[in-house]
Design a protein around this nucleic acid. Structure first.
Lengths: 337, 337
DNA sequence: CTGAAAGCGCTTACAG
DNA sequence: CTGAAAGCGCTTACAG
């Protein structure tokens, strides 16, 4: 088990020598080949553990071709939604015997490009990517063209032919809006969300629900902003300063809703009593915010697992048909609306 | 740029042929060797990009010995504290030209062991590890013995000689407790934290502040529990049911404090007005909770960067003296106390 | 059932 | 300034 730091690493050759066998036999044993009789295998394993042998994946993968690493690139880990997705992706991937090469882009397109290049150089068996805002369409095409299996998650990117795991944003927001309408609200704000298809889809759901009730869509009531707590706070303040004051808001996501709650609190208002608020995602925190958040559940960690599963499928069967997973949104009614 | 999926990857040999040079020359150019004249280098680069060459790190590292991957193992990404640390670690490491092999243990010691084995097999140049609860002391020793540079973060693990990045827990909680005492509170609870040195240190700080004011430490007022929102909620409920009811609580960390706020809210109470509450960590969310949280700032992402820096130092200079970084806690007074 | 040999794509002395 | 050769630690046919 002990081994001086300066020593060169022990290889299968050392193990072979110690067991008086050839390195081929050792290799076979380590891969669990059925060709080797149990007794021989035991001898090899004993020698290996005695010498403190550790397998060198780089060497193995170089020769064997198969890689056990998978790239995962996310852009906003400070948002628990993405952290929970990452948990799901990682869990599934480790389960399948892979290890994840993780990169955080912080919505930086250059960094994203750089990091994907590194994934290729590292020989990742595939990559799951949540594209940064502002990612040019051509980018995904490049990645696809590179031959590395790719699954895109959460945010789509033009009409590519890549595998995709996301949520039915329109239906989700539609349900949230309808919930507010059913409670009698008619002047409803839309808070947060800056750009991109996800925002478009969510706004569509918002509009659809209003239209169904013949309520005129008022563009002044949608306050765009980064999907962060901070801007949830700011946009809620803006909303509260409007006259007549809206009585409810559907938020772009949970994190925006949390920020909005804090703005409400500062003015002595309480979500669910003085103002109705809905979120989107159902991150873990939503069950214990103050007050607990009524939100649209898209099961972030399950979404992550799905993304991983799609990639695993693609790696196993590169020519299979395009896969799309869309989480079914589920309204979870708690205290805030 | 295009390249059929089935084709074998283009190698420096292909590039060499295309540029009518030897592969040694190509290799030298790719490493930016000054031996090669600019014109030749240009020819090589042109050929490489024309053929869509991508460097194979596995091959390079196998021969060259140096690895550009670093393991990072965390155990509770659902806690924004760890997510923010991860952001800091990753940022620093990518900056230095490394890519992170990330693993999430979810406080599972077996998984942790397995994952560290994989890091070694992958040839990680080093690992930064936040040990899972219940990690046996022997574990770190094993890792140290394996020769892989290691930095431990947040939670120490016996009197090892590993590099460490953490916070001065005792001083931090001392400051928070003192803040509550200064505001006139005398019956103060301690919420959350289950086990481990971190909890011990924080409790020490708590006790020290009470002792200074000659307030008797009452073990009934410390309610142990997982450091999660859920248990913050539960423990706060327990605290509120005590008679006489405490008027303040110092929480093990921010996440516990958030849960506590939600419990308060459910009973129509408001932190900062009806009850005083402090957190620990100062995660990003703390500025926008409802109400904003008075907490002890240990700058999670800077802590992550520091951990990465220690590891980078260690890799560069394996024999240097043991490094310890302890974040200076800073009380941030907001609304909750 | 086990071994000798070639090769994965690089890097690194060493010649010239 | 550039090339031929050996080798990193494995795996994979192929013999025997």
């Amino acid at each position: 088990m002990r081994k001086p730091v300066t020593t060169r690493p022990v290889t299968i050759l050392d193990v072979a020598a110690a067991a008086s066998l050839s390195k081929s036999t050792v290799s076979l044993v380590l891969k669990g080949s059925p060709l080797i009789p149990a007794e021989t295998a035991e001898r090899v394993r004993a020698a290996a553990s005695k010498l403190g042998y550790v397998y060198n994946s780089r060497a193995g993968e170089l020769r064997g071709g198969r890689s056990k690493t998978i790239g995962v690139v996310v852009n906003d880990l400070a948002n628990p939604f993405f952290a929970e997705i990452l948990i799901g992706v990682e869990r599934k991937l480790v389960e399948a015997g892979y290890i994840v090469l993780m990169a955080h882009t912080n919505e930086d397109v250059d960094r994203q490009r750089k990091v994907l290049q590194i994934m290729r150089e590292q020989g990742a068996a595939g990559t799951v990517l949540c594209p940064a805002y502002g990612t040019p369409r051509a980018f995904t095409k490049e990645v696809e063209a590179s031959g590395m299996p790719l699954v895109v998650m959460v945010r789509t990117l033009g009409p590519g032919k890549y595998d995709f795991a996301g949520a039915d944003n329109e239906r989700g927001i539609y349900a949230a809006t309808k919930h507010l309408l059913d409670a009698g609200h008619t002047r409803i704000g839309f808070l947060g969300g800056l750009t991109g298809v996800v925002l478009e889809q969510r706004l569509n759901g918002f509009r659809a629900a209003l239209a169904e009730r013949k309520i005129k869509f008022d563009a002044d009531l949608v306050v765009a902003a980064q999907p962060t707590r901070r801007s949830g706070h700011e946009t809620m303040c803006a909303l509260l300063d409007m006259t007549p004051r809206p009585t409810a808001a559907v938020c772009y996501n949970d994190v925006v809703a949390f920020g909005a709650m804090s703005a409400l609190g500062e003015r002595g208002l309480h979500a669910g009593r003085d103002f109705a608020l809905t979120g989107f995602d159902n991150v873990l925190d939503a069950a214990h915010s103050n007050p607990p958040l009524t939100t649209v559940d898209i099961r972030p960690d399950a979404l992550g697992e799905q993304a991983a599963t799609l990639l695993l499928n693609r790696i196993r069967e590169p020519t299979r048909a395009r896969q799309v997973f869309l989480a079914e949104p589920q309204l979870v009614v708690r205290q805030s609306a």
